[in-house]
């Protein structure tokens, strides 16, 4: 029996509601990896808001999650390592009508691109940053990441990691993000609600999505396959309401990961402020004052 005889449903019967918004041939992720789930969550949120490819742009950096921008049928940019946020800032400032979504990994956003992250949060650029946190560098072969826990075995820490990790939620909140949330990747309902809030938010929004990497992190730390790792993650996740961001514990050793929405505030976005600056600059009197002072 040839494999082609076994197709249970003819391909034309597949009318997945998101099929028009995604490029299926660019889904290159390992079976069971939650990156695909996050992509479909974002897409279904965009679809439900009635946004089409002229309303949004997707930017990603390098790494496993870096390859995710190609999955969207939209203006999608796969930039250099760590530079997804500046690229997105450029797009947003040049065309403030666009919803700009940055989708990248923990190494890309917080190691090589850490500086860009805190500064984009500080200036409240109206971009949505989704960090898919797998606590390791997946694509390069499982090296230690700024989110790897103390004691983790990776290919560059064979005796166990000795560096304390970043707490991404606390970092984002301290840097001035106006929306901060952390969700496990399997909790798609809550994740989608969060993404809706990000799309509507007039400021820098950040969601940390936990998507354990069973190929690199799981195998090196003996945590099992994709499903077993989700089971392991699920045991640790505690969902809290109105929890302060500095107490958003993320600790595999204690077995506590606090999830929820930590920051939700309204602040004027950066491109609005640029708009006001233009009005000020086009006022001839002020220009003359500047000229005189020079």
């Amino acid at each position: 029996m040839s494999p082609s005889d076994q197709i249970s449903i003819p391909p034309e019967a597949l009318g997945h509601p998101l099929i028009d918004m995604l490029n299926l041939h660019r889904f290159i992720f390992c079976p069971g990896c939650l990156i695909g789930t996050v992509i479909t969550s974002i897409t279904s949120c965009l679809k439900e808001r009635g946004l089409t490819s002229k309303d949004y742009a997707i930017v990603s950096g390098i790494g496993c999650t870096g390859r995710s921008s190609g999955c969207f049928k939209a203006p999608a940019f796969h930039t250099t390592h760590g530079r997804a946020i500046p690229f997105a800032t450029g797009i947003k400032l040049a065309n403030p009508k666009l919803k700009v979504i940055v989708l990248s990994g923990d190494g890309d956003l917080f190691a090589i691109g850490g500086n860009h992250f805190i500064h984009a949060a500080r200036r409240n650029a109206e971009i949505t940053v989704l960090c898919i946190n797998n606590n390791i560098y997946g694509m390069t072969g499982g090296q230690v990441a700024p989110t790897s826990q103390i004691g983790d075995i990776t290919s560059t820490t064979p005796y166990g990691n000795v560096e304390p990790p970043f707490n991404l939620v606390s970092l984002a909140a301290a840097a001035g993000a106006t929306y901060v949330a952390r969700w496990p990747g399997y909790d798609t309902l809550r994740l989608q609600k969060s993404i809706f809030k990000c799309i509507d938010n007039q400021g820098f929004s950040f969601i940390e999505v936990l998507a354990p990497c069973f190929v690199q992190y799981g195998s090196k730390n003996r945590l099992g396959d994709a499903v077993e790792m989700l089971e392991w993650l699920k045991k640790q996740v505690r969902i809290k309401v109105d929890w302060p961001p500095h107490q958003a514990t993320f600790d595999f050793k204690k077995g506590i990961i606090i999830c929820g929405e930590f920051v939700e505030e309204e602040q004027e976005g950066f491109s609005k402020k640029i708009e006001q600056l233009r009005i000020k600059a086009q006022n001839k009197k002020i220009d003359k004052l500047i000229k005189d002072s020079e």
Partner: peptide
């Protein structure tokens, strides 16, 4: 915009260019 470093400056220029 005064960016945080030159890496960000040039990359955001390409972003703006593509917008």
């Amino acid at each position: 915009i005064q960016m945080e470093d030159e890496l960000a400056s040039i990359t955001s220029c390409f972003g703006a260019s593509y917008a």
